[in-house]
Simulated assay, not measured.
Amino acid sequence: MVALAIVALVLGAILSLPGRDGDRSQASETSAARLQAAFDARQSDIWVEATGEVVRVLPDDLEGSRHQRFIVRLRTGQTLLVAHNIDLAPRVALLSPGDEVSFRGEYAWNAKGGVVHWTHRDPSGRQVGGWIEVNGRQYR
């Protein structure tokens, strides 16, 4: 019985190692749940990482700093506007509805689900900044 318990513990530790598919999926679900909680509580200024599906690519916002904009749906069903500053980071190439996108940025609440911005390096170097990843390529 003790040997069986040890085997179960070892297998559990191996399956929870970073980089395993199950681990990534669980991390994505945790991030989506955190974003849903931030939306429900009307919180802003929260750094988040998540993965979702592009549901719509919008025209660039050209007022002030230029931003590439698209809407992502998380596994929870929540939608987010991603506003990626293309004056500070490269444009995400060939982005289309249906693409899976991972991102890190700062979340700001709005009634439509929220906005994620700061998906780029901090030009002043004071904070880590964010990124967008599509098809194995990271944009920051």
Rank of each mutant, 00 (worst) to 15 (best):
L4R: 15
G52F: 08
R73Q: 03
P90M: 01
H120G: 03
L95M: 02
D23C: 09
R75F: 00
V115W: 02
V7N: 01
V82L: 15
R20F: 02
P97K: 08
R42F: 00
W47Q: 11
G22L: 00
H120N: 11
S31E: 12
N110S: 08
T51D: 04
V115K: 05
R24T: 07
F103T: 11
V115E: 08
P123E: 11
Q138N: 04
D45M: 07
L80T: 08
I14V: 13
R24S: 08
R140H: 09
I86C: 00
E53L: 14
V92P: 05
F70T: 08
P90H: 01
Q43H: 13
R34H: 09
V10S: 00
S25Q: 09
D45G: 07
S16M: 05
V82A: 06
V48S: 08
L80N: 05
S65F: 11
T76K: 01
G22Q: 00
G77N: 03
V116P: 02
R73T: 00
F70D: 03
I6Q: 12
L80I: 08
F103M: 14
L81K: 15
G52N: 09
A27P: 08
A8C: 04
V101E: 05
F39K: 09
Q68R: 06
D99L: 07
P123Y: 10
F103Q: 10
D40K: 13
S25K: 08
G12M: 00
F70Y: 12
T79E: 12
W109G: 02
G77I: 07
Y139N: 00
R42M: 01
W109Y: 15
E133D: 03
W118L: 06
D23I: 14
R121P: 13
V57M: 04
V115G: 01
L35R: 04
H117R: 05
V128S: 10
A3E: 15
T30F: 10
P123S: 11
D40A: 13
N85Y: 07
V115C: 04
L81F: 05
A13Q: 03
G125Y: 06
H117W: 03
P90I: 02
P59C: 01
A27Q: 15
S28Q: 12
A37G: 10
Y139P: 00
V116D: 06
D45N: 11
I71S: 07
L11T: 01
A27I: 09
L94H: 04
E106P: 04
S65P: 15
P123M: 10
H67Y: 07
A5E: 15
G64H: 13
R140A: 04
S102G: 04
